[in-house]
Design a protein around this nucleic acid. Structure first.
Lengths: 353, 353
DNA sequence: CTGTTAGCGCATTCAT
DNA sequence: ATGAATGCGCTAACAG
């Protein structure tokens, strides 16, 4: 059983304030017959302390159940050991989010840091959410990782105002770019490889359903797409490229517009959701996948489709880990690209002879 | 643009310490011509402050970009506004974990609290994990929610030593019971309802594959199972009940032992994993589901099986929310049961005539 | 190698 | 209703 230093307290006082009876640095110093700073030095291992005293202090501390109060030390060092992870799960918790959390958590653990998870829980997040109690500036975090939000997030500006290291995973809005580091997979390369894969299978008329046209990721995907076409001496035809809002509904809607109008043999979609919409519409139109149409999605959200959808697997755990590393990397470039993806070849595409 | 109070600092000093230039309570007090305590009172709204002064203070504070430092206030109030959420995802992040996190997060937000997520990341969690830097006692949390760990978790004892409110979601080890509150669905009732459902479909020989026999949850499930049988005047036969470690492998192994030996028409399993193992073994033995054998799982982990598995859906988000509420509930009983489940009837069972 | 002093930024008595 | 003084538990200069 532990012995507490201030046992002269009344029972009432004891219950009144939870851990008020916890031994503090003074108690240890007094019992060990040394000064506060020596105790501090022992626990922080910064200055050299004689072995004899170190042992003594540790022994007494252990006896008293003492351990340095993080709050108090944070007040002077300005470091809390806490990293904020901001996830904008407006709609719902996505697969990538879980993996990111794990990656971040694992990497933080290596340096004894912990994570405060800030979820922007959809509907609860009304106007009042910006009230006085939600100022991020007051949050006890040393640094922040933000999962690229789909919608403009006013809170990012607050974080930047705090002048703390920030890493955005995914594409950062351009206006933030000099102020934050950002980390992503190589979307040009991914799009290039997917397109090339279809070309190698014999496809020549390949449509691309992109996300919003002014998003960086869409531009990148377009670049990769065009690059691959060029290698096969196919001229880029705007009639085969579309934009959508990345939802299943939009995918289906677009499908009804193009499936019967165009003569493409393959479609690349920006996400599994859009692909799922296409699947549905294709079924209604009597178009068989992959017999009549091949489909390859660029982003994976684990949609279970039949036939199995070709998609791109991104190692989000790796991204999460890398984000943590990047936070402390003073030399790193603002924009960092990481190799963390893999094409998942499944049953939604076929070879054309 | 914000104005910072201590602009007389050199550029060097400015960059040296991140937010050192942040206005503090003294700056506000001075500029507003009031005392620190008045500013404090304004922001905490505890004591009455005249409207005139309140406005003035708010105005100045806004101008200076001032906001009370949570760290400093925590040091005196002993409250950080942080709740620890402990998840033992040794194997992997499970579906229930995501929902729990969301529930906890949503509920915390209502009272402006935040969450530190402590993941026990499997293999990284070696002996060193218990070193000096991992003492939970040093963590800046006011309270803790623990997702019932499968294995004995030494950290729980540490948490208890901290004398902070603790809620365990799921079944708590008995030896902790007086010290923590615990929250769960009614496992007796669930098992009862599932068994009864099968009985109503005409099944009479129903096997039960339980978890470890000394776990509370297993005992509860057994109770519900027997209760339902009794209502149908069927005597409990130990030969039809088994224990497993809840893995798919174990499910398959058990299956190979019993599928051809026993004449039951239905099996209730402790988890989707075990059910999955049974599926595999059944296929090998040429036993069709549900034609030859009906299967009902008691716990859902979103295993995608064909035919669709009958399972029990638990509303983990609700459990998470309730856990947060329970933390602050001084009157609540140690053991709390919550209504948050639903039987999911699918294709893995059939009516017997 | 060790001790002394002085804050960190705030909430909280207790005066006025 | 407002202010002055004190301390939360610790680290960081600086002295010795």
């Amino acid at each position: 059983m532990k012995q507490y230093a201030k046992m002269n307290k009344t029972v009432y006082e004891y219950h009144k304030k939870g851990c008020d009876d916890m031994a503090n640095i003074n108690d240890v110093a007094r019992k060990a017959g040394v000064s506060k700073s020596t105790v501090s030095n022992v626990f922080n291992g910064k200055k050299n302390v004689s072995d004899e005293i170190r042992q003594k202090v540790f022994h007494i501390a252990d006896n008293l159940g003492y351990y340095p109060n993080k709050l108090a030390s944070a007040l002077t060092t300005k470091r809390t050991g806490l990293t904020g992870l901001f996830i904008d799960n407006n709609s719902r918790f996505r697969h990538m989010d879980y993996k990111l959390i794990e990656g971040v958590s694992r990497e933080l653990r290596k340096t004894n840091k912990h994570m405060i998870l800030y979820l922007q829980a959809g509907k609860d997040n009304d106007v009042n959410a910006m009230d006085i109690n939600n100022k991020l500036i007051a949050e006890p975090i040393d640094e922040a990782i933000i999962i690229a939000p789909m919608v403009k997030d006013i809170r990012i500006n607050e974080l930047i105002d705090m002048r703390k290291p920030i890493v955005i995973i995914g594409q950062a809005p351009n206006h933030l770019l000099p102020r934050v580091k950002c980390l992503d997979v190589d979307n040009i390369q991914i799009s290039y490889e997917v397109t090339k894969h279809l070309l190698e299978l014999g496809h020549r008329k390949i449509a691309l359903i992109n996300s919003d046209s002014n998003m960086t990721i869409s531009i990148d995907r377009m670049k990769g797409y065009i690059k691959a076409l060029k290698e096969y001496h196919i001229e880029y035809n705007p009639e085969y490229t579309f934009n959508s809002d990345n939802t299943e509904e939009m995918g289906q809607q677009l499908g009804s517009r193009i499936l019967n109008q165009l003569d493409m043999t393959a479609v690349i979609t920006s996400s599994d959701e859009v692909a799922s919409g296409l699947y549905k519409e294709a079924e209604q139109c009597g178009i068989a996948i992959p017999k009549d149409l091949s489909i390859f999605a660029l982003g994976g959200t684990d949609k279970q489709l039949k036939p199995d959808l070709c998609t791109v697997y991104v190692d989000y755990e790796k991204l999460g880990k890398q984000a943590v590393t990047l936070l402390s990397d003073k030399e790193a470039r603002t924009n960092q690209v990481i190799d963390a993806y893999e094409l998942c070849i499944a049953d939604s595409i076929k070879r054309i002879i």
